[in-house]
Design a protein around this nucleic acid. Structure first.
Lengths: 372, 372
DNA sequence: GCGCCTATGGTAACCGGTAGCAGAACCAGC
DNA sequence: GCTGGTTCTGCTACCGGTTACCATAGGCGC
């Protein structure tokens, strides 16, 4: 047994190969740390930390010197280390289940506008409220990440269970939702009703009398909000929404197409249709095309959302617009406001939609002849 | 000077109030830590850590007991603490500058499909390649976050400067790009050319001879790829792309509308137009409508992307489809593969588009009369 | 000149994990 | 029984920041 002089090769524990980052990657030129900066500046870590966090009690001259060194070396404090110490990450979550990609994209861009330069990042989390694991998923997401805050869009923003969960998880949140939602927390309000009322008024002014409303699914507050606003707008002109002209859609193209076909196949078909969103309005367009009904000569159509398709479809569609990107930005900024003055629980902002009038609205056939 | 008996109030440093998380929040019931789990299981932190990371050398019985305790308490290891120790975060970045929200949304969903259950999160980062600070921004983003990896979509995925930067920052990445791009790193390839060729073949089969190609901007590889494929497809039928029928667009609705107007105003206008993407094809639709040219009777149109608008517009548009969501998933999975076998530098997957035939294609006017 | 307050910076501990190693327990072979 | 190797486990030092607490130097009023 040549008891071979045991080679001093590091007999490292073979279990010490973490799975996820099997980091065999070169660890050359490790980044600068706060200790390096402190050494370079001839001060302590604490002082550099004060500068980074804009805390008081650092001589202006010292502060300037440290800042110069930070800039010179392009030093960036590690968010994970900071987050660990702060017990809070530098991540803002977007929890959404909105079916409109354009809407979601604009919300994202708005949030990023607010986050830009502040050192926070946006993490995306789509969800399904009807999933049995919905709440557990959300709790896991929020707690694990120690999110700095989250933004909620319709229709999750209307879910009180989620709001309660975030509350108990001590995670600040701002909801983007329409005005009828419970206002017990910070939120970005949208007055969908006012936009719908504007659409109603416009159609009434054009002379329409048989006007249909194609509503979204009851699950969405906006369906009711828009419907109520539309009815109110008609009322200003002494008009009513006939029960047979109030039909239920699902905020989808298919439902717009199906309901549109039914509405337009009637002998006393409406001369105008207001759809709860652009997707459904687009379905109405297709139904009209199928039946040889011209827009806007024979039928006026108004949508809601002012999605890109509104201007791409032919003829360009009149629609109700909300400043979605700005709403996203405002919501994210509300998160920062919340974190500072935790007391404030008022709406962050309110938005009233505007009617973007295009080529899908005109006087009704008869009124048209007699008017012009 | 009643030297008032100095109250023993903690004279804490007033500078010790970190700015960002001015955490005045209740810090009740702090979450369980790995130490708690270790205590509950009667083992050391290290052993729990081994279980979490699925490292070997833990007795099956011990492992099972620890796993049971973890499950019972719903313990989730803190990603920030893990990331700090690993020198790598559990975040996957999506760097994109694609103008199509639907595309981006599907890529996001695909990435999330791959990330689901693995404990990684998706952070979004739109960018602008033409910005003078582009590279610095990207470097800051990637280094600060110590990203686990990033996914790039066209057209940033075609930017070699960025690829080089990621390489040097030691950040794994997978590019989604068309087949003509430099294949020196892992990527999800799309054979746009084949899709364009299929479109060309179909139009040729229908009897079209005067066929126009509306290209995207030269900045995008896909513009060239699709163009080349289209020409190749025509060639199979002995056809050529007439120089005056190859026009330059910008992948936007407006450019499609403008070029469409020009093409269709000619006396010898084309009987079919293949647009580099659906946005431009939609513009062509509008131009045709304006000029009273019927689709598909007078003009066939084919788009590329199979965006939702393709089925919402009337008549439903024939388009070339890529499985975008799946591509996103594959790309993200490629990231994990990369991290394990760092050597592999081959394409992760290749996708060939399919032609989704709808109602915007038909034989050309003359051929039509003579054929039917 | 003394006592005390303010301004400023240092030090050690800690946030919640992982890595490096030592050491114990167990087994086989001589 | 001893040696040597393997499997399993725990101690301790970090990762890169922040916080609690202390120390020191001036400035001020008496």
């Amino acid at each position: 047994m040549k008891t071979s002089h045991r080679p001093p090769r590091a007999k490292r524990d073979p279990s010490d190969r973490g799975e996820p980052p099997a980091s065999k990657r070169s660890r050359t030129r490790s980044r600068l740390t706060i200790t390096d900066i402190a050494r370079l500046a001839g001060v302590s870590k604490k002082t550099v930390s004060r500068v980074i966090n804009q805390a008081p009690y650092v001589q202006a001259e010292t502060r300037a010197r440290i800042e110069a060194i930070i800039a010179e070396h392009g030093y960036q404090p590690d968010p994970q280390a900071r987050g660990l110490a702060f017990r809070r990450s530098f991540l803002v979550g977007l929890i959404h289940d909105n079916p409109n990609p354009q809407y979601v994209e604009n919300i994202q861009l708005g949030i990023l506008d607010a986050l830009a330069g502040r050192g926070y990042e946006l993490v995306i989390r789509p969800c399904d409220r009807r999933s049995p694991t919905f709440l557990d998923d959300m709790r896991g997401f929020v707690e694990r990440l120690r999110l700095f805050g989250v933004v909620l869009t319709p229709s999750v923003s209307e879910d009180d269970r989620l709001a309660k969960l975030l509350e108990s998880a001590d995670c600040p949140y701002v909801r983007i939702a329409c005005a009828t939602v419970d206002k017990s927390s910070r939120m970005v309000l949208t007055h969908d009703a006012r936009g719908a009322a504007a659409a109603a008024r416009r159609l009434a002014e054009l002379g329409h009398r048989r006007i249909a409303y194609l509503s979204g699914p009851p699950l969405f507050r906006s369906s009711h909000e828009r419907r109520a606003g539309f009815i109110a707008g008609l009322a200003e002109y002494g008009l009513e929404l006939a029960p047979d002209l109030a039909v239920l859609g699902a905020y989808t193209y298919e439902s717009g197409l199906a309901r549109g076909r039914e509405l337009l196949a009637r002998s006393d078909r409406p001369t105008a249709i207001f759809a709860g969103n652009d997707e459904m309005a687009t379905g109405v367009y297709s139904a009209a095309h199928e039946l040889g009904i011209r827009i806007p000569e024979d039928l006026s159509v108004i949508g809601f959302d002012d999605a890109p398709i509104a201007t791409r479809i032919w003829p360009a569609m009149t629609s109700v617009r909300l400043p979605v990107r700005e709403m996203g930005r405002t919501a994210a900024e509300g998160l920062f406001a919340t974190s500072k003055t935790a007391a404030a629980k008022a709406p962050v902002a309110e938005y009233t939609p505007t009617l973007m009038e295009r080529d899908s609205t005109a006087p009704p056939p008869r009124a048209r002849a007699s008017r012009s």
